[in-house]
């Protein structure tokens, strides 16, 4: 599903690369944690996958498409197949939970008929039935993150990428969010979660990719967080 070949990413003006010669293969339906301290290159890794950044060297394939050499006009198509979740939720404050999710379908030209069918369904899946008319500031952090996950998943993408999705949440709520990702993963969706939440990673025993200083230092099935504090 995701294939990363000898990828190096150096920001303009930076003296050392943010990502150094990384090779990773992620299969369809896998659940993968990307771990490492702040500044280790986790966010850069995710931004490379949605082609917000283009690697300085190497190739990235998603579902067989070489996204580093992709035409600009094709990028939206790529992003429709990848759902993104962020630490700060990125919800529109003047739209309700329902409207926030519907917006994602609306702007890619989905007909109203499909929007009316899919949005309530995905809100039920993330456990927000009854909250669909609430505005973000009326929802708790965990609920807002559920809206954001619903928005990422509503178009049934093949891949979900999450960048520190529990960074602003307390441990109990974080656990709920992680089990939601697990649930989504069981529908056959590939899930990649970047986090520095040690407890979570140790509990879930999933594949772990550990980054340090932009280098992949460990790729472990049923792994643990593993850094010494």
């Amino acid at each position: 599903m995701i294939k990363i070949n000898n990828v190096t990413m150096k920001y303009k003006g930076a003296h050392s690369p943010a990502i150094k010669d990384i090779n990773v293969d992620i299969d369809r339906g896998e659940f993968v944690f990307l771990v490492g301290p702040s500044g280790c290159g986790k966010s850069t890794f995710i931004r490379l996958l949605i082609r917000e950044l283009i690697p300085t060297k190497g190739k990235i394939f998603i579902a067989g498409h070489d996204i580093a050499n992709m035409r600009r006009g094709k990028v939206p198509q790529l992003r429709r197949n990848i759902g993104c979740v962020f630490q700060d939720y990125k919800l529109l404050p003047n739209k309700t939970a329902y409207e926030n999710v519907a917006f994602a379908l609306d702007v890619i030209g989905k007909p109203n008929r499909i929007i009316r069918a899919q949005v309530p369904e995905v809100l039920r899946l993330v456990g927000l039935e009854g909250k669909s008319e609430s505005y973000p500031d009326e929802l708790s952090g965990g609920e807002q993150q559920r809206v954001s996950i619903a928005r990422a998943f509503v178009n049934r993408p093949a891949i979900i990428l999450a960048d520190e999705p529990t960074g602003n949440l307390d441990p109990a709520t974080s656990g709920d969010i992680m089990s939601l990702f697990n649930k989504i993963n069981r529908t056959g969706t590939t899930v990649l979660v970047a986090t520095h939440d040690r407890e979570m990673v140790d509990n879930m025993r999933k594949r772990v990719l550990a980054l340090e200083g932009g280098t992949l230092i460990r790729d472990q099935q049923r792994g643990v967080y593993g850094y010494e504090e």
Partner: peptide, 16 residues
């Protein structure tokens, strides 16, 4: 800008 960021993220076409 917020809407635009989200539109880009969910794959709204450039001309849209």
């Amino acid at each position: 800008r917020r809407e635009i960021a989200i539109m880009r993220l969910v794959g709204a076409s450039n001309w849209f």
